[in-house]
Write a protein that binds this DNA or RNA. Sequence first.
DNA 1: TCTCAAATTAGACAGATTCTAAGACTTCAT
DNA 2: ATGAAGTCTTAGAATCTGTCTAATTTGAGA
Lengths: 143, 143
Amino acid sequence: MDAETIQRSLEDGGLRCTPQRYAVMAFLMEHAEHPTAAEIFEAVNRLDPRSSRATIYNNLRDLVEAGLVREVAVEGRAARFDAKAVRHHHFICDRCGNVEDMEWYDVPKPDADSLGKRVFREYELIFRGLCARCAPRRASRHA
Amino acid sequence: MDAETIQRSLEDGGLRCTPQRYAVMAFLMEHAEHPTAAEIFEAVNRLDPRSSRATIYNNLRDLVEAGLVREVAVEGRAARFDAKAVRHHHFICDRCGNVEDMEWYDVPKPDADSLGKRVFREYELIFRGLCARCAPRRASRHA
DNA sequence: TCTCAAATTAGACAGATTCTAAGACTTCAT
DNA sequence: ATGAAGTCTTAGAATCTGTCTAATTTGAGA
Ligand SMILES: [Mn+2]
Ligand SMILES: [Mn+2]
Ligand SMILES: [Zn+2]
Ligand SMILES: [Zn+2]
């Protein structure tokens, strides 16, 4: 992944390009597996400069607020993060909790009636079932 | 809500009808506001018999596994629960995190190609934006 | 160079959920 | 009715995730 590209996307989001912030963004742009904050912390600290846990969380928050990163909540597990490159839906595995990207397609938005006074911003489609790794051992009941 | 109905739905799910489990299921069937485990704990303990926190969580897990209850993960907040009466989508407020029901409508499932070896079980549509209560004060930045 | 806001840090803290180990309750076969 | 075996509940400890605090460092701009 080109350093220029990463730096530019931070600046586009109105964020200064600090070494720690750069490391988080770079890791997310290079890894599409929806890592958790803990995984990002571990990964970026295998190389210098070291980032503290607080900084990982601070930067993830900043990146999400800037719209550069998406946070995916998974029931009962740590949040996962995702550099929003191209629009896409998600598939979440019932068994292992893995989040996988699914090709984007539009679906009809809810009509004004059912929205009422709510202000619509976006939607996403979540598919559930068993991922390719879990499907074969479907019979076994526990992770 | 009819006691018979609640009891029957537990048995349909293959679960024994204990007083504590009944209390959780009854509360969920009578309250559509997607309560958290803590809210359920507090509510069912305003009357006897008392349920411990562990029992609330145990029973919520059992109910979810039995397919009687849905768990809704919201970024950065406690999980919310939902007796799956009628099929519906969800609207989640960006500002206050409230989860609201939206009328169900079908959308096209992903094609076999993009599913690959995954086993599809269900999908849900999540809308995001501002709820009716938050929309008016849209300008203010913090909850 | 100086100043000041922004960013980082270690560690304390808090909230949500799970785990543990013991006891109580059910079921079911005698 | 009795006893064994499994299921359920419980209090509290433990764990995991994420936030906060207060002190320090950094770096952009004057
Ligand atoms: Mn993704
Ligand atoms: Mn609902
Ligand atoms: Zn899986
Ligand atoms: Zn709201």
